[in-house]
Design a protein around this nucleic acid. Structure first.
Lengths: 239, 239
DNA sequence: CTGACTACTTGAACGCGTTCAAGCAGGAGC
DNA sequence: GCTCCTGCTTGAACGCGTTCAAGTAGTCAG
C-alpha cells in the first residue's frame, strides 16, 4: 500500500490486449467499483469473489476475465490513492518554505490519504512485500511511480530554504523516500487508535532529520557524512 | 525468513496445553520433519497439507491437532536457523572485544546461516510480511524469539569495550535488532551473486554505526541524541 | 478386571480462490 | 438475411487450507 503512493499513475491496466469495447469497460468498472466498496464495508478477507460477483450481478468467472486475481483488484485502489497523495502534497508545498514543515506536511498527507484503507492496506502490503511482485515498490514495474515519488521529495528539498551539503542534497530525496517507505511500513503495523503512533513517529522524526541535515555541515560530522554517502554509493552499485 | 533468526528459542510451542505424552510428541516431530523436508524439496506453496499428512502417514486433521495452521509449521524452520545463528555468533563474541568487529561478525554470521535458504526465504517473506501473520517478526507469537534475538545484540554491546552514553546503551540492542531486520529486508531483495551487496551493506554500515555511537558522547550531538531517544520512547508508548 | 477419562486420530465436509469448456451477442462482410 | 468472428459471459468443478463430530486406545482409580 502506498509504498509507491504519490505518483499519478495510469488508472489500472486492462488484462485483455484486444481492443476494448464499451460494454467490457463498463462491466470492468462495475466489478472494480463493487469490489472496492465491499472491501471498505467488510474488509478484504471477508469479501469473497462470489459475493463481489453476485453484488455486481455477474458470474464469478467474469471477474476473472477482467482481473487476474482477487489481489489484482487492489491495484485499482492503489492507483487511485497515488494521485490523491500528490494532490494533497501539492497544497503543502505551495504554502510552506522551510524544510521541516514541508516534509512533515507531505508525510502526514500520505497517511491522511491512506488512513481510510488501513485495514486492507495490510493485505496489499503482503503482496507488495514479495520481492518478485510487480507491486513491490522496488520492482521494475513500479519504477515510474517510484521515480515520481522521489521527485516529490526532491520538491520537498529543493523548494525549501534549507542550506545543506551539495552531495547530501543530491542523495536526500531518495533517502527521504526510503524514510517514507519506513513510515509506511510502521503505519501498516500500527494498531494504535487513529494511528497515533505513526503520527508521533512523523512528528518526532522530522525535527530530528531536520537537525541532522543542518548538522551535516558541521566539521566534526563531515567524515561521517562522507562515509555514509560512500556507503550508499557502494551498496547501490551492483557489479 | 529469518526475520527473527538468531535466538536460541524453545523448539516450537505445542498447541495443546495438556501434559504432553511420548506418543504425541513423536507424531508432532514426524509431521514437522516431513513438512520441512517437503518445503525444502518442492517449495512452500507447492506443498499441500494433504501431501504432508500422507507422506507422514497421518490424517490431515492430525496435523491441525499439533499446528494451528500451515504457516505455524514454518516456525519450526525459523527456530532451527535461530539456534544456528546463535551458535555461529557465540564464536565471534568469544573472540572479539571491540564493538565494530563483534557487530560485523554477528551480522555476517546471520547471513551465512540463512544464505542456503535465500530463494525459499523470499517466498516465505510474502507470508511473514503480513502484519497479522504469526510469522511476522513483530507478532506476539514471535515474541520469545524476538526477545532472544535482542538479547544477542545486548551481548554484542555489553561484551564490548565501547564506551557510550548509558541511555543509548539501554536502547542500542533493540536498535541493532531493528537494523538487523533492515539488513534481512535488504537481503531478501538482494539478487546480486553471492549476496555481495548485502555484504557491502554490512561492511559499510558497521563502521558508520560504530562512529555514530562514539560521536554520541560529543557535546554538539547530545541534544540530537536526547531527541532521538525521546522519539523512541514516545513511539514505543501506545497510550 | 472394568469402567471412565482423555490424549490422540480420523476423514468427510465446508467455503474459499481460481479455472475452463461451453455458450451468448452484436457487428462486419457478403 | 445469414454467417462468422470475437469480445464477453456463464457456472460447475477443482484443489486448496481448515474444521469438527466421531471414533480409538492408552492409563489410572476402584
Amino acid at each position: 500500500m502506498t509504498g509507491v503512493t504519490t505518483a499519478a499513475a495510469d488508472p489500472v491496466e486492462p488484462k485483455p490486449e484486444k481492443p476494448r469495447r464499451a460494454r467490457g469497460e463498463q462491466t470492468r468498472q462495475l466489478i472494480l467499483e463493487t469490489a472496492l466498496r465491499l472491501f471498505r464495508e467488510r474488509g478484504y478477507a471477508e469479501t469473497t469473489m462470489r459475493v463481489i460477483a453476485k453484488e455486481a450481478g455477474v458470474a464469478v468467472g467474469n471477474a476473472y476475465y477482467y482481473f487476474d486475481s482477487k489481489e489484482h483488484l487492489i491495484q485499482g485502489f492503489y492507483d487511485r490513492n497515488q494521485a490523491a497523495h500528490r494532490e494533497a502534497a501539492e497544497q503543502i508545498l505551495a504554502s510552506e518554505t522551510e524544510l521541516a514543515p514541508r516534509l512533515r506536511g507531505v508525510l502526514h498527507a500520505g497517511i491522511d490519504v491512506n488512513e481510510p484503507y488501513h485495514s486492507f492496506a495490510a493485505t496489499l502490503f503482503k503482496t507488495a512485500a514479495e520481492p518478485t511482485s510487480p507491486l513491490s515498490p522496488f520492482s521494475r514495474e513500479s519504477s515510474p511511480a517510484r521515480e515520481a515519488a522521489i521527485a516529490l521529495f526532491r520538491d520537498v528539498v529543493d523548494g525549501s530554504t534549507a542550506k545543506l551539503d551539495p552531495e547530501l542534497r543530491k542523495e536526500l530525496p531518495e533517502l527521504l523516500w526510503l524514510a517514507w517507505m519506513g513510515v509506511v511500513l510502521f503505519w501498516v503495523y500500527d494498531k494504535s487508535p487513529g494511528r497515533r503512533r505513526t503520527r508521533r513517529l512523523i512528528d518526532g522524526s522530522v525535527p530530528l532529520i531536520d537537525r541532522l541535515v543542518s548538522l551535516s555541515r558541521l566539521r566534526v560530522l563531515r567524515p561521517a557524512l562522507r562515509q555514509a554517502l560512500a556507503l550508499i554509493e557502494s551498496v547501490r552499485r551492483d557489479d
